[in-house]
Simulated scan of single mutants.
Amino acid sequence: MTFSATYVQAWREGRFPSARVPDVVERLSGIPLYLVHGRYDMTFPASLVPLTPCTDAVVLDEAGHMAHIDQPEAWLAAVSRFL
Rank of each mutant, 00 (worst) to 15 (best):
Q71W: 04
Y7S: 13
F16T: 07
A63N: 03
T55I: 01
F16S: 04
Q71L: 10
V8C: 04
T55D: 09
E62C: 08
P17R: 03
V8Q: 06
W11K: 10
G38V: 12
Q9W: 09
P17D: 04
H68A: 08
W75L: 02
Y34E: 10
T2P: 04
S47A: 14
I31L: 13
A67W: 04
G30F: 00
W11F: 14
V25W: 03
A78N: 08
S47D: 04
G38A: 09
L28G: 01
F44G: 05
P45C: 00
V49Q: 03
P22T: 01
D23C: 09
H37L: 12
A74K: 15
G14M: 11
P53W: 01
F3R: 12
W11N: 13
M66P: 00
V25D: 00
F44M: 14
P17S: 05
A67I: 05
R81H: 15
A77E: 14
H65G: 06
V8M: 09
H37F: 08
Y40W: 11
V24G: 03
I31M: 07
F44Q: 11
F3S: 11
V59H: 05
R39Q: 14
W75Y: 15
L35R: 00
Q9V: 12
P22G: 05
L33F: 03
F16G: 05
R27Y: 01
D41H: 02
V8G: 01
L83V: 13
V8K: 07
S4I: 05
L76P: 01
F3T: 14
V49F: 12
T6M: 10
D56G: 12
